[in-house]
Amino acid sequence: MGAGAGRSTADLLSEIEDLKSKIETIHGRISEHHREMTALQGEVAQMEATRRSLLAEVERRSRPPDDVRITDHALLRYVERVFGIDVDAVRREILTDGVARCIELGASTITVKGIQFRVKYRSIVTVIGGDQKTHRKKSKAHHRGRRPERDDVNAHLADYYSPEDTND
């Protein structure tokens, strides 16, 4: 005979209810452990963030003295405030309507009065004086076998070349 053949239906139903009760108890404990685990994971994440922050601070404080530097922003503010240089006036002197138009037309280098303005992503990123050496790289257009058009760019530089200008 099979298992449970000698038991009554009432006994089997009672055992099923007992098993269901145990399942509910286990399910409750699992849910409780999930909540605890989630809380612990949050705490671990917070501790990890704190640990990373502390490690970064230790690294920052452990740098040798030769790593001490001044940012370009601080240097510019010093020149502006201590030497009394009007930085916005200098900005206007560099970024005239003609230069802006050249940038809009896609120029990557603009030369005005022997000074080169290098352009990247529609911004002047560096200035090279007439007495400084430049690294001559071939343009992408050159590599593709065509020369970039310069007539439009040069046409918009007329405001730099006024007849009364004798500083060239």
Rank of each mutant, 00 (worst) to 15 (best):
M37I: 08
M37V: 08
M37C: 05
M37P: 00
T38D: 04
T38E: 02
A39E: 08
A39L: 04
L40I: 08
L40H: 09
L40P: 00
Q41V: 02
Q41A: 04
Q41G: 00
G42A: 06
G42S: 04
G42T: 12
G42H: 05
G42R: 04
E43Y: 10
E43C: 07
E43A: 10
E43V: 04
E43W: 08
V44N: 04
V44I: 12
A45E: 13
A45V: 10
A45S: 07
Q46P: 02
M47S: 11
M47Q: 11
E48Y: 12
E48I: 09
A49L: 09
A49N: 13
T50E: 14
T50I: 01
R52K: 14
R52I: 10
R52M: 12
S53W: 07
L54M: 03
L54C: 04
L54V: 03
L54A: 03
L54W: 03
L54S: 03
L54Y: 04
L55G: 01
L55C: 01
L55K: 06
A56N: 10
A56C: 06
E57I: 02
E57W: 00
E57G: 04
E57F: 00
E57K: 03
V58W: 02
V58Q: 05
V58A: 04
V58S: 04
E59R: 14
E59P: 00
R60V: 02
R61F: 00
R61M: 00
R61Q: 08
S62W: 01
S62F: 01
S62P: 00
S62D: 07
S62A: 11
S62Q: 03
R63W: 08
P64E: 13
P65H: 14
P65L: 09
P65E: 15
P65G: 09
P65N: 14
D66F: 15
D66P: 01
D66S: 14
D67C: 10
D67H: 15
D67E: 15
D67F: 10
V68A: 09
V68S: 12
V68W: 15
V68D: 14
V68Y: 15
V68G: 06
R69N: 15
R69H: 14
R69A: 12
R69Q: 13
I70R: 11
I70F: 13
T71H: 08
T71D: 12
T71C: 09
D72W: 09
D72G: 11
H73I: 13
H73Y: 10
A74Y: 06
A74E: 11
A74W: 08
A74S: 06
L75Q: 05
L75D: 01
L76M: 11
L76N: 02
R77E: 07
Y78W: 10
Y78S: 03
Y78D: 06
V79P: 00
V79H: 01
V79F: 03
V79N: 01
